[in-house]
Amino acid sequence: MNSQIKLSTVIVTLVSAFLVYSSFILGDSENYLFPRLISATIAILAIMLWFEKGEADKSTNFKDLMPGIAIASAFILLLKILGFYLASMIVFFTLVMYYTKPTESKDFWRLLLIKLGVTIVFTFALYGLFTLLLKVHTPEGLF
């Protein structure tokens, strides 16, 4: 038994308790029959999980993961302001520049140019496929 599972057990139990509680506040009980049944079962199972002998969970390498999550979250928020394609270009370039393996080209400017090129080609490919060909709408922003 390890901390991450214990933690998720606690969270799951609290969330289901909150949902049951809010269902009593929010509306008449008839509409909440199903969610209540489910959350009750969840709570019981979560307690059972507490005592289950499980295998150890995998550790997380936050040092390499967090910058990615941060850049991606910024992208999601920028979408609505900048529009899909401009935001895509920025996130694409930032991510591939940030995540560079030491084995990739030693010449920084060469690397920058290559990645900028791929970014532009990829974004235009998306634009061609989705907006021009399929006529799908993308999140609109300023551009």
């Binding site: 996130v91 694409f92 991510l95 995540y99 709408h137 993308t138």
Partner: peptide
């Protein structure tokens, strides 16, 4: 690195296109 950002962009785009709804993203 390219694969990750490619999946990310397609996932965001695909999600939005289903109901044209930013909340879905």
């Amino acid at each position: 690195n390219y694969m990750a950002v490619g999946i990310l962009l397609l996932a965001v785009f695909g999600t939005y296109s289903i109901q044209n709804n930013y909340s879905d993203v």
